[in-house]
């Protein structure tokens, strides 16, 4: 349906944007690409009194790659990630995951900052953030703070952000050249939200065994999370087909999936195990 009425501001500095958000008793919302927020408005699930457009804020649309990892400005679009050849080696897991985000037209406007602030449990970017121990920077009235991804996502569409805070940057820690990774998700139609997804990586120790395993899920439960037991099943082992099955079983046992019109909880659990197994085998190849 048509959007509910709201006022609109398009500030040119971060301080101005924060002041605008703080001035409306928690009724103001930031808008970047709007690819999640506008549908929320159309469904009348959100009724802000003011929208603060972030598009003119300087310096938030850069992808910085350095020794300490990848820093994505909040206004970096899916399109920008796909077009950036450097990320194929600087963060192959990010690159693989973003290929699954929505559709062509949405990838031209949707932003990484918007995705994490929206916190859809099935969205890829929050999943990558949690799997990779990303740090999310937010600016608010009280200054700037860094929030660990594991603490940032509090539930479905719920984050640690305060009403006056704006995500400014997502920092993904450095990616060693020898790291192995895999990303798998399943949706009935291309571009739809995943019924389950797995983002994983591990490093190899001197003996060729997996170490530093990180296994994250999306679409199962109310937020993206890492699976400690599945990671434990992977650490210290040589990755074989038999091990991939075992790690997949551990992942399936560990998740706490929801049931909805798209899939039963049992299906999501089984799917997660299969996707974990496939992601691990893809990583090992």
């Amino acid at each position: 349906m048509k959007l509910p009425p709201f006022e609109y501001a398009c500030p040119t500095t971060l301080n101005e944007a924060v002041a605008l958000l703080a001035s409306h008793n928690g009724e103001a919302k930031a808008i970047a690409g709007g690819q999640s927020l506008v549908p929320m408005l159309a469904f009348r699930l959100a009724r802000p009194s003011l929208l603060v457009d972030l598009r003119k804020l300087p310096g938030l649309n850069e992808i910085k790659i350095g020794a300490d990892g990848v820093r994505l400005g909040a206004l970096v679009r899916w399109r920008d990630i796909q077009d950036d050849k450097r990320l194929e080696s600087a963060h192959p897991l990010l690159k693989a995951a973003i290929a699954h985000v929505a559709h062509y037209q949405i990838r031209n406007r949707g932003t990484v900052g918007g995705s994490v602030a929206h916190a859809d449990p099935a969205a890829e970017m929050p999943g990558v953030c949690v799997a990779c121990d990303a740090v999310i920077t937010a600016a608010g009235k009280g200054g700037t703070r860094a929030i660990k991804a594991a603490d940032f996502f509090e539930g479905a569409l719920t984050t640690a952000l305060k009403p006056d805070e704006i995500v400014t940057e997502i920092h993904l820690p450095a990616w060693p050249a020898v790291r192995r990774s895999g990303f798998q998700e399943f949706a009935r139609r291309r571009g739809d939200f995943a019924m389950s997804g797995v983002a994983l990586f591990y490093d190899l120790d001197a003996g060729g065994k997996a170490t530093n395993a990180h296994i994250g899920t999306i679409g199962v439960g109310d937020r993206p999370r890492r699976l400690a037991k599945a990671e434990a099943a992977l650490n210290g082992q040589a990755v074989t087909e038999a091990l991939a099955v075992k790690v997949g079983e551990a992942a399936a046992a560990e998740v706490d999936p929801q049931e909805d019109i798209h899939a039963s909880a049992a299906y999501r659990r089984s799917l997660t195990g299969t996707l974990c197994e496939r992601a691990l085998l893809a990583a090992a190849r």
Binding site: Y8, G34, V38, P39, A42, D53, R55, R79, Q105, N108
Partner: peptide, 29 residues
């Protein structure tokens, strides 16, 4: 659909295909 699913409203903004139902007119300034 008016919520970014069907693609019927696709237009080009600065050369890129976008969903015109997921963009505010005031954002086209």
């Amino acid at each position: 659909c008016e919520h970014g699913v069907c693609g019927a409203c696709t237009v080009l903004v600065d050369g890129e295909a976008v969903r015109a139902c997921l963009m505010l007119a005031v954002q086209a300034e």
